[in-house]
Amino acid sequence: MIRLENVTKSFERYLAVDNVSFEVPKGEICVLLGPSGCGKTTTMRMINRLIELTSGRILIDGRDIHEVDATELRRSIGYVIQQIGLFPNKTVEDNICTVPDLLRMDRKASRKRARDLLEMVNLDPNTFARRYPKQLSGGQQQRVGVIRALAADPPVLLMDEPFGAIDPINRAVIQDEFLKLQSELKKTVIFVSHDIDEAVKMASRIAIFRAGKLVQYDTPDNILAHPVDDFVADFVGADRTLKRLQIVPVRDAMQSDPPRVTTDTPIDRALELMERHEHQVMVMVGPNGRARGLVRRDAIRGAKGLVSDHYERIPCVINIDETLRNAVSMMFTNDQTWLVCVDDDGMYRGYLTQRGITHLLGETYRTS
């Protein structure tokens, strides 16, 4: 969708961007990351021609950006900045519709879209549409700034440290709202950040810059697991293994489809299964496969009847699509060394252990 080919930007006294090439597939978020002065913001601003490149090419959906009038190009690309830049004399609704109005889009349709977008970021349009920016909190203003960039439904969105000036609590909320929006709208996004944790959370791919050069371009997991050099390793931090916990899903580390017992399994059969598979604890499922409880080998030894007469409740379960970070937090909170893993319907899919987590992460480094 967005392709940079040998892009270079020279100013009078220095080379800001040095022969940079990468491609962002349609519907993905690419975060440009690096220390101050590394060229990441200059690179992003060349995409909508706020800064003109010195050499190379930038293509959007196969078309060279210099084949398009600069003003027309900018109106077709959503743009979100850290300072937000809402017009103080316009209502929230009119701020959102700034570009649709410039493009002479149907007023009724654009206002409806503005209200729909407000709902998508948890701002009640009946409450907020007619307010002015000064009547909003900083976090609310930032939400409006993000959806204003989406009002004309652009295929490409540029974001220049859009959440950097917001407090940590609101930042996390707005990041989550944006990711939810992105899952529905599938925009192609270039996102400038200085925060590796934000990049890991938000990005499909990360481009790390140093002194105008693109040092590494890869998925967040590969950058954390396989930094290309000492600069990247130092930049992502000594705790890069812990950072991976927030992007690796439970399903990748769990033991899938282990043996289980049902509510009508006889005690002697359950003991036989546990001994054969060397399990001290086994999950009991209901008729449809949903996790219902735990059966402990020591507790049922010598007992009679069915396992449903001798089970105990499951302290906590984790969804297979949750991150390992959430899983580890749940383990610590509930003083557990393993978790029952379920899908969205509550079906038992496997179990996750602390050892399984460390094995998965360690195996990545051993095969690097």
Rank of each mutant, 00 (worst) to 15 (best):
M1P: 12
R3A: 09
F11P: 10
Y14F: 15
V17Q: 04
S21K: 11
V31G: 06
G34C: 06
P35V: 03
S36L: 06
G37R: 11
T41F: 13
M46T: 06
L50K: 01
I51D: 14
E52S: 08
E52D: 15
T54F: 04
T54M: 05
S55D: 06
G56R: 07
R63E: 14
D64T: 02
D64K: 03
E72T: 13
V80Y: 05
V80F: 04
Q82C: 09
Q82I: 04
Q83G: 10
Q83K: 13
F87C: 07
P88Y: 07
K90V: 06
N95M: 09
D106P: 01
S110C: 10
R111F: 04
R111H: 08
K112P: 03
A114Y: 12
L118C: 11
E119K: 13
D124K: 12
N126F: 02
A129G: 06
S137D: 07
G138W: 09
G139I: 04
G139L: 11
Q140I: 07
Q141R: 15
R143T: 03
V144Q: 07
A151C: 05
V156I: 13
L157Q: 03
L158F: 07
L158G: 10
L158A: 05
E161Q: 06
G164R: 08
V173K: 11
F178M: 09
L179P: 00
L181D: 02
K186C: 05
K186W: 08
V189D: 00
H194W: 05
I196M: 14
L214F: 14
Y217P: 10
D218V: 14
D218S: 15
T219S: 15
N222D: 12
I223C: 04
A225G: 10
P227E: 10
F231S: 02
G237Y: 08
G237S: 04
R244Y: 03
Q246H: 00
P249G: 08
V250F: 03
D252F: 13
R260Y: 13
D264L: 10
T265G: 05
P266W: 06
A270Y: 07
L271C: 03
E272G: 12
H277M: 00
M282D: 05
G289T: 04
G289E: 01
A291M: 09
V295E: 00
R296Y: 14
R296H: 15
D298W: 01
G305D: 10
V307K: 03
S308F: 00
Y311E: 06
E312P: 00
R313V: 12
P315N: 08
I318E: 02
N326M: 09
V328W: 02
M330L: 15
F332T: 13
T337R: 14
T337L: 10
Y351E: 06
T353R: 09
G356H: 02
I357L: 08
H359I: 06
R366A: 14
R366K: 11
S368Q: 10
